[in-house]
Every structure is written in C-alpha cells, then in structure tokens.
Simulated assay, not measured.
Amino acid sequence: MQDIKDTIKEVVYAVMPITIVVVILQFTIIWLPFDVFLQFLVGVLFVTIGLILFLLGVHIGLLPVGEMIGSALPKTKKLWVILFFGFLLGFVVTVAEPDVRVLALQVDQVSGGDISRNILVYSVALGVGIFVLLAMLRIAFNIKITYLLAGGYSAVFLLASFTPAGFIPISFDAGGVTTGPMTVPFILALGVGVASVLRGKNSPTDSFGLVALASIGPILAVLILGVIYG
C-alpha cells in the first residue's frame, strides 16, 4: 500500500508543474479554445492514471523479473545463452518501447512514408539488442566501458560523414528514445542480475553503463539505414 501511495505522489509531483504552467499560459497569453483546453485537462487526467499504473507495473513486474532473468542466465554456465537472450530481450523490449513508436510515427509522417515506421522500429531494436549483447560481454570479461563507448562513438562520427544529413538528427533522437520507461528499467535490472552472479557483490558498478551502451546501437542502426537509403 505504501508503494502505491509513493507512486501516486511521484506521478502527481511530476505532472503538476507542466499542468500549472499551461493553465497559467491559458489565462494570460495563449487563450486556447475552451474545447482544446478541456481536452488538455482530460489528457492530463489520463496521463496521470496511465503513469501510475505503468510505474506500478514496472515495480511489481518488470524490475523483479528482469533481475531474476539476469541472475538465472549465468547459472547455465554457457556464454552463448547469456549473449543470445541478452540480445533477444534488448530487441523485444525496444519494440515494446512507446517512445520508439512515437518517433517512428513522426518520421513516417514527415518522410511521407519513405521511411517506414516498422523499418525504423526494428532497426532501432536491432541496434539495442546488439549493444546489450556487447554489454553482457563487457560484464563477462570485465572490459572497461570507456573502450566500448570510445569505439562506439568513433563509429558514430565516422558513419555520420557518409550518411545523408537528414538521418543524423533522427539517429541521435533514436538513441534518446530508447532510454524510455520500458527499456531502461528492464535493461538495468537485467544487468544487475547478470553482474551479481558473474562479477559478484564486489563489482556493483559492472551492472551500470548498459543504458549508455544501448543508446549507441540505435544511433548506428539509423546511420546505417541512412547510408542504405542514401
């Protein structure tokens, strides 16, 4: 019950500032039509209820399950199993990410359908899956994250020089939307579970950095998509 109360407070405190700002603007500067303003208030109510239910689902389901899966995979003592399911989970959780679908829809509309939303979603998901796989390798072999980040962003800037200019901002937006409310909790929990078994309790920081790595994958994927389309 306390978790529910804390979640409600967290969501109300998060939504209230933007609501207050819009209300102040409505009665001072913008003066939207009443029906539009009413739609905004109804939308705020729906968003608040939706976020409360979503965050409760994350805390009750996604986080525990992600950590349990992460703890169970290393016990198989097969590296390929860890890598395969790391890739698969990274892929499917990105396909389910609402932020990715919003970006894909906007790009599809702006491009007039030239860049299909499904192609963009699956390209981004593929990029995340590959880099979650690399993150599992990093945990398994204790590779310094600075090497992977430096190599990843070097590849990003190299590819950017060959990609049509229109794809570059989309690629970095793709990297941002993958750090959404669905992907981040699951990937972090997965990393915590894997690191707790492979690296032990003496290396708590091994489970972090997965999101930073995972956000490089979509950038590279969209840049490669740009090279193909270009």
Rank of each mutant, 00 (worst) to 15 (best):
A14M: 11
M136T: 03
V132M: 08
L190P: 08
T7E: 09
A135F: 13
L210K: 07
G166E: 05
G176V: 07
F46S: 11
L41G: 01
S215T: 13
W31Q: 13
V42L: 15
Q26C: 03
L38W: 11
G112C: 09
Y13Q: 11
I170G: 03
G166Q: 04
I219A: 09
I29L: 15
R117M: 14
I82F: 00
F27V: 10
A221H: 04
A150S: 11
P169N: 05
V102H: 13
V58E: 00
Y229Q: 05
P185A: 04
G50K: 07
G200T: 08
T183H: 02
P218V: 01
F131W: 12
E67W: 01
V81A: 13
R138L: 06
F157T: 12
F208V: 14
T163H: 11
D173T: 14
I30D: 06
Y153Q: 04
L38H: 09
G86K: 09
V95K: 01
G217F: 00
W31V: 09
L137G: 05
A135Q: 09
A104F: 08
V36E: 10
A174P: 10
R199D: 02
V197S: 07
V92D: 02
I170W: 04
G86E: 07
K77Q: 10
L213R: 06
F37A: 08
M1H: 10
A104Y: 10
L134H: 03
A189C: 09
D173V: 12
P33D: 14
G226P: 03
V44P: 03
V21C: 08
V156S: 12
K201E: 15
G50Q: 08
L56S: 00
V194R: 08
W80R: 12
I170A: 00
V102L: 15
Y13E: 15
S161T: 12
L188M: 15
S207D: 05
K144S: 11
I168K: 12
V21P: 05
L134W: 06
L53H: 01
G152P: 07
L103M: 13
Y13R: 12
K5E: 07
